[in-house]
Nucleic acid binder design. Structure first.
Lengths: 223, 223
DNA sequence: TAGTGTACGTACCATGGAGTTCAATAAGGC
DNA sequence: GCCTTATTGAACTCCATGGTACGTACACTA
């Protein structure tokens, strides 16, 4: 009666037969669960017990693999920042005419933020904590700072070819692009509450995408 | 020995003689302390004991005046959102030519965000919590939604006078303006960590202010 | 100048939640 | 088969923290 293994699995979160002894999978599951938890509730609001409960394993594993709540959070950040850089570096900007390259960059930035609200939320959380974990991760810094190099090249090329007006600052331009893409996701809930229109609703997405492209292209145009 | 009142005050947090029985001041002090605490640490990260420790009064008073940590947080939000609307409604936009009015609006928005990082941080915190407290406050919603009305009028006037191109959406335009002003403050720390340049440093402020004005004016220009 | 309600302080409670203990079980080498 | 080591689980510990019980002091009124 107690150990009825035959006709029903004794206890299973999902119906997938749980793979015993799969450290990689266990680690992966914990990271995914932590991404969800921390991006929904923040660092202090996120609960270690709840993260464990989102997986098929137990809290013990968090401490086995990561050592502390803080270090799990740091691992989550590295993971998410990693995804961002990949998207941007996959673009063949150097082979496109400057205006088109810039348009592609804006669209990619827009799409990535739209597709990864957890990333946006975690960056918000990290800023509340004064970016202590980002500052402590040379890996995150190096990869992300590289994005600016690419944009700097593009700006220089655009100026030389006369497609862009002179005097543009690559970092400021990066901020102009990111700010809108980030804001409509990060501030989605206050915007929806105050103005009664969800900025992530399908009818807004296309309009916003066109808008930020248009705004940036007009901003860099000569004259 | 025990009640030595004469030659030394028995216990004093600051050297200012504590005003007994000043409910308004006590309440005010608690709100100010809570603004600082919550904007530095978030809602879950903020400690009721620490808020009390920032004042000359005690934790008991938080519960006396506000009832709970949650309601204190809600009071803080109302307070900060209140400051924002005042700044915007003080502008005499209707009397200025459209382009100039828009420029003033952008500059005011920029300046207010720059001057009130606690506001920006609290709005970020609120978005992590899915804007539950903003959504529950008709007062906040009403006042802020009004801002859009003003902008809608301006957009209509600009279109009629031919100063703006047709087809502009007031809410989207508001988002374009706010996003940059908000982002450079909200994401100050990750930006500084990754790019090694503090967006709130004096040499960036003027450049950013010019940039968002320029970007918005170019965006609304006809043609 | 006693009475009363509002404002305040001290000491305490209850519990949620981060982190640990300790033993058990699987996998693989010999 | 047996030993070793990398994983795993249930049941703890313990303390920080939100919240409260209870008593006191001030200031105003009659």
């Amino acid at each position: 009666m107690e150990f009825n293994k035959a006709d029903a699995p004794p206890r299973e979160t999902t119906d997938r037969p749980r793979r015993t002894r799969d450290p990689d999978q266990t680690r992966r599951d914990l990271i995914d669960a932590a991404i969800a938890e921390f991006s929904e509730k923040g660092f202090s609001g996120g609960r270690v017990d709840d993260i464990a409960a989102r997986t098929r394993t137990t809290k013990r594993m968090i401490y086995y693999y990561f050592g502390s709540k803080e270090r799990l959070y740091a691992a989550v950040l590295e993971e998410l920042y990693g995804g961002m850089r990949n998207a941007e570096q996959a673009l063949p900007l150097a082979r496109l005419p400057p205006l088109l390259a810039l348009q592609r960059l804006v669209e990619t930035t827009f799409d990535h933020h739209a597709a990864h609200p957890e990333f946006v939320r975690l960056v918000s959380v990290e800023n509340i904590h004064e970016a202590r974990n980002v500052a402590a991760s040379p890996e995150i810094i190096k990869r992300n700072a590289a994005v600016i190099g690419t944009l700097r090249d593009l700006v220089a090329r655009g100026e030389n070819e006369g497609a862009f007006r002179p005097g543009l600052d690559a970092l400021d331009l990066h901020m102009l692009i990111s700010s809108f893409c980030f804001y409509r996701v990060s501030n989605r809930h206050t915007l929806a509450a105050i103005f009664g229109r969800d900025p992530l609703a399908p009818e807004s997405v296309a309009a916003h995408r066109r808008m930020i492209v248009e705004a940036v292209l007009r901003y860099v145009a000569p004259g």
